[in-house]
Simulated assay, not measured.
Amino acid sequence: MLRFNLRQIEAFRAVIQTGNMTLAGELLGVTQPAISRLIRDLEEEYSLQLFVRQAGRIEPTKDAIALHAEVERCYGELEQMVKFATDLGSFRRRRLRIAAIVGHSYFFLPEVIKSFHARCPDVVINLRSGSSSEVVEHIERGRSDIGLALLPPEVHGVVIREMPETNLVCVMPKAHPLEKCEKVTPQDLDGIPLLLISENSLMRKRLLQAFKEAEVQPNVIMESTYTGPICSLVASGMGVSVMDFLTADAYSDLDIEIRPFSPSIPCELKLVLPGSQVESQPARIFIEMLREHVR
């Protein structure tokens, strides 16, 4: 059973902060005898000695210092809880928390966020970036309202919604011989230096499977955790890449050309949403704008 008397803890905390029973009473709006009684009751309840008198002032004991550290930690959590409870009625109307994979946080979401802010200027936006698994974790633990990640169809603990489908494309430097191709195939890329997203990507695994089925050994000269830097290197003439269309399109102002890749490989960009939380109006508006932007 929880026996802590919050008033005793407030008195204890005030005495630690002021170093004086009288000042602690003034801080809490009570008399010095009331503070002394609260401290005495706290000591008796838990068989502690919290303060000793030295040279006319009281000094905290080791137990008091240890207890104060724990009290401060709990007060921080309590203040967060009180703030959450106070804001609960309006929280979802005023704040939108988004978690997204790193690449899309840089080149895709900023334009959507800008448009959303113009439409809903009173909503504070919080954007977190991470891997797909981190995005799912944020949504599952209630730290974010909307997630955007590259995921397989089956992910547990959250709600997954489809986004408008986009496919992988081939990105090459301007004036590259592959410019003449209407579609680029694994056979077209035989022996050509390739810059690809790293091995742990589902997109990468599907791409390598396409090369395997075409009996072509890809000439991979560089791997990157995220696709963003690859476009700049392609523009510099370092090689060619196959990546998701949204990334390629975001960098289309560079000296690159974009061609469809065949066979068609979908980019599994998904919306990740909490399993039990009703979508707020800002969330619904943002999702609508997100889908429209992908289209």
Rank of each mutant, 00 (worst) to 15 (best):
M1F: 09
L2P: 00
L2A: 06
F4V: 08
L6P: 00
R7G: 00
Q8R: 11
E10Q: 07
F12D: 02
R13P: 01
V15I: 05
Q17G: 10
T22C: 03
T22A: 11
L23D: 13
L28F: 00
V30N: 06
A34P: 00
A34F: 03
A34N: 07
D41Y: 07
L42K: 03
Y46K: 06
R53I: 13
G56L: 09
E59K: 15
E59S: 12
A64Q: 10
A64C: 13
A66F: 13
L67E: 05
E72A: 14
Y75W: 12
Y75I: 13
E77V: 06
Q80T: 03
M81G: 00
A85F: 08
D87N: 10
R97G: 03
A100M: 01
I101E: 14
F108N: 00
P110C: 06
K114T: 10
S115V: 07
F116W: 03
F116M: 06
H117K: 14
H117V: 14
A118P: 00
A118W: 01
C120E: 12
P121F: 05
V124D: 10
I125V: 15
H138L: 15
H138G: 10
E140G: 05
R141H: 14
R141C: 09
R143P: 00
A149K: 05
P152C: 12
P153H: 06
P153M: 07
E154P: 10
V155K: 11
H156E: 15
G157C: 11
V159C: 12
E165C: 10
E165H: 12
V169A: 00
C170V: 11
V171N: 01
V171T: 07
K174T: 09
H176V: 07
H176C: 05
P177L: 13
K180N: 11
C181F: 11
P186H: 01
D188W: 04
L189Y: 05
D190G: 04
D190H: 13
G191T: 12
L194G: 02
L195Q: 04
S198L: 00
E199Q: 07
R204C: 07
K205H: 08
R206S: 12
L207F: 03
L208R: 08
A210R: 05
F211W: 05
F211D: 06
K212H: 14
E213D: 09
N219L: 05
N219K: 08
I221G: 05
I221M: 07
M222I: 01
T227H: 10
C231L: 15
L233T: 02
A235F: 08
M238W: 11
S241Y: 07
D244T: 10
D244P: 09
L246G: 02
D249I: 10
E257M: 03
I258N: 02
I258L: 04
R259M: 02
R259N: 05
P260Q: 01
F261Y: 06
S262Y: 10
P266E: 08
K270D: 02
G275S: 14
Q277G: 01
E279T: 02
S280D: 04
H293F: 15
V294M: 15
R295L: 12
